[in-house]
């Protein structure tokens, strides 16, 4: 089955991004495809390469990037939401791309399931 995931909250502040990541990992482990993860609202902050968590904590940003690389997951950051919050190409973490809201709608159309994580 083809899954789309929406993440509406930033990393560390809210559990949404962790829940979404663990869900994505479990879906892939079960043989499903995670076609796209769309980052919206404060969720765009998951794509900041300037993030530096303490050594003993999980690295939420890198974890997404690694998942994308290993399983061809399309990590899309909403451009309008990103510009509002200072996320631009120059500080975009590897594995993410910035694009329009149409990418979210497309995920809704093309995926068998769309699961939202937020506040």
């Amino acid at each position: 089955m083809k899954f789309g995931i929406v993440v509406n909250e930033g990393p560390y502040q809210h559990q949404a991004s962790d829940s979404a990541y663990l869900f994505a990992k479990a879906a892939i482990a079960k043989g499903h495809e995670v076609w796209r993860v769309f980052f919206y609202h404060d969720g765009v902050n998951n794509a900041s390469k300037l993030t530096e968590p303490p050594q003993d904590d999980r690295n939420i940003v890198n974890r997404w990037a690694k998942l994308a690389e290993e399983h061809k997951v399309d990590l899309v950051v909403c451009v309008a939401a990103a510009l509002r919050r200072g996320i631009k190409e120059e500080n975009l973490a590897q594995g993410f791309r910035i694009s329009g809201l149409g990418q979210l709608v497309e995920a809704g159309i093309k995926c068998d399931r769309l699961v939202t994580f937020g506040d």
Binding site: M1, A26, A27, K30, H32, G118, D119
Partner: peptide, 20 residues
């Protein structure tokens, strides 16, 4: 359920809704 069970619930239901 664990996360795998969460995935199964989303696939066995036609739609899901997050009451955020």
């Amino acid at each position: 359920v664990d996360y795998g069970g969460f995935v199964d619930l989303t696939s066995s239901n036609k739609t899901c809704q997050s009451w955020l």
